[in-house]
Design a protein around this nucleic acid. Structure first.
Lengths: 237, 237
DNA sequence: ACCTGAACACCGTTCAAGT
DNA sequence: ACCTGAACACCGTTCAAGT
């Protein structure tokens, strides 16, 4: 919801300033972005804020809730405007926004995909359910029957998260290396067992995530159009 | 690769039997299945095996490698036969197999989606790369150009993992409750803010994951056929 | 009523001391 | 050369003692 934050804004809270949940969570996010999930411990976060770690339990009941809070904070960066003129264009834009958000906060992605697995839908932090509600709204307003909107959402969000996981996995091991095999560390694979993968090194090394996502969304939207015949727009493909 | 294991087989190794990596990993998997990822600690696993925890470092250099080993062990249950008569049917079957595997080992799913994010492609455990290699083989043998095979793989595997994450998220909070809203805990959501989601409670409560996956795969395959015009099979839809 | 920090029951991992 | 377990540097969380 809230737009891009000025990074210097509320960065390190004044020494004796009163803490707020926002302050605690944004410090937690900074820590995760900079050093990874494992670095986010109650004690370390307390140290980062210049406070007794025990004081943090006022803002998150336990570490799991702290992690949920970080998820919420990040998803809050995603803007979904329900009054969409064109639902397909809207879904495409949201997909690209979420992709960029994931690239901005790669260390948070495991949280986004993993935390919901340990909490039933209705007990999840509201901030993480808002995108779901808003996309359903978007689709229903565009004329889908609610049950169809749910199917579209599932296929869309499923593919979207799948793509993000795929893209983040194909990280470069050594960007200075200009031999494709070496850039991805693929030379470590036994050639007999992995001929296809090794042969694809040059293709893998020049991966264009935005283009791939865009094409995937196109495929999905055209498939969905063919199967669900959405209102107000003729099926593609 | 190896078929379903007899659960009593190599369950608890004889007290002073020599440990093997297989024995250690299957004990680790049992622990994760029964009590979740957090229960898998070096000390607890040592206790489970009746051994000094330090001895485990002979079979996994550290906890991260132990987690990778569990991922490998689970993915090993997935059979991919490269000599496929019909690549579409094959992809569909693999999707259902992986779905069932995820339902059998829900606590391992976070590992499957998360571990690859912290290791470059070429340095990953071979067991986790084998499905990728085999699916590429399958597609290339079916006539796809290697680069196209990679695109198909990405769209397919992305959607597949996305679906699994979606499905595992929609767990029932109280199976004995027959009011849909309560089954999912959706009554906890503020009605003003989440009208769509609450209204969909009955649909959510009767989720059929296998059917949804099957339909999603159909949509994807028809979309892929339209965009990539694979050899030896006319485009669907 | 709030804040503080000592204490408890754990972690992963190193490494010296045994065999 | 291998195995063992003491020791180190951490964890999350509880709760009694202070204010």
């Amino acid at each position: 919801m809230s737009p891009q934050k000025d990074p210097t804004d509320k960065a390190l809270p004044r020494k004796r300033e009163r803490l707020t949940r926002e302050l605690v969570l944004s410090a937690a996010l900074r820590l995760v972005d900079a050093e990874g999930l494992d670095a986010l411990t109650m004690r370390r976060l307390g140290q980062e804020l210049g406070r007794d770690p025990m004081g943090l339990y006022r803002y998150a009941a336990n570490r799991a809730e702290l992690l949920d809070g970080v998820s919420e904070l990040v998803l809050d960066e995603l803007a979904i405007t329900p009054d969409a003129p064109d639902w397909q264009a809207q879904l495409r834009r949201i997909a690209h926004d979420l992709r960029l958000l994931a690239l901005r906060h790669p260390n948070v992605v495991p949280l986004l995909v993993t935390r919901p697995l340990s909490t039933p839908l209705g007990l999840r932090p509201l901030g993480t359910l808002r995108p779901l509600e808003q996309i359903l709204s978007l689709l229903i307003d565009a004329g889908f029957a609610p049950a169809d909107a749910l199917h579209v959402y599932r296929a869309y969000y499923g593919y979207l998260y799948g793509h993000i996981l795929n893209e983040l996995q194909e990280l470069i091991v050594d960007p200075d290396e200009n031999e494709a095999l070496l850039r991805l560390g693929l030379h470590r694979l036994p050639p007999k067992e992995f001929p296809r993968l090794r042969a694809l090194a040059p293709v893998l090394a020049t991966y264009d995530g935005a283009a791939e996502l865009d094409q995937g969304i196109s495929i999905l939207l055209s498939g969905l159009s063919a199967h669900l015949s959405p209102p107000g727009s003729q099926p593609l493909g």
